[in-house]
């Protein structure tokens, strides 16, 4: 199954209990030879979708923070995100079961 990363970015992610875990912000890969393998999904607390003015401002603030140490991101191992419905990605565990970054 193929998932379009550009459409996945910004999607809201819920955990098994239906609690908000953040939005898809980036994907960490490892390049092995000619292949790139996904290792981790990065979730961020802010919005990556830009629809309204306030979204734009929020998004820019997030961008500013994302490069600093204080950025609030959650790292999800590749097998802990269920993408069978790419519009509604879900964690296969609880938020507090995620490994600490």
């Amino acid at each position: 199954m193929i998932v379009n990363l550009e459409l996945l970015l910004g999607r809201k992610v819920l955990d098994v209990n239906g609690e908000k875990a953040g939005r898809v912000f980036d994907v960490r890969c490892e390049q092995q030879g000619k292949e790139a393998i996904v290792r981790e999904w990065v979730l961020a607390a802010g919005s990556h979708r830009t629809r309204s003015v306030s979204d734009v401002v929020q998004f820019l603030l997030l961008q500013l923070r994302a490069r600093t140490e204080t950025a609030k991101v959650r790292v999800v191992p590749w097998d802990k995100l269920d993408l069978r419905d790419p519009r509604n990605p879900r964690l296969t565990c609880r938020i507090d079961e995620l490994p600490a970054e």
Binding site: N4, L5, E6, A36, W78
Partner: peptide
């Protein structure tokens, strides 16, 4: 403009 990821059973996804 876009990136396709291939999900695989029991294996980590790869960039297609």
């Amino acid at each position: 403009d876009g990136i396709g990821l291939e999900l695989r059973d029991g294996e980590p996804p790869r960039v297609a």
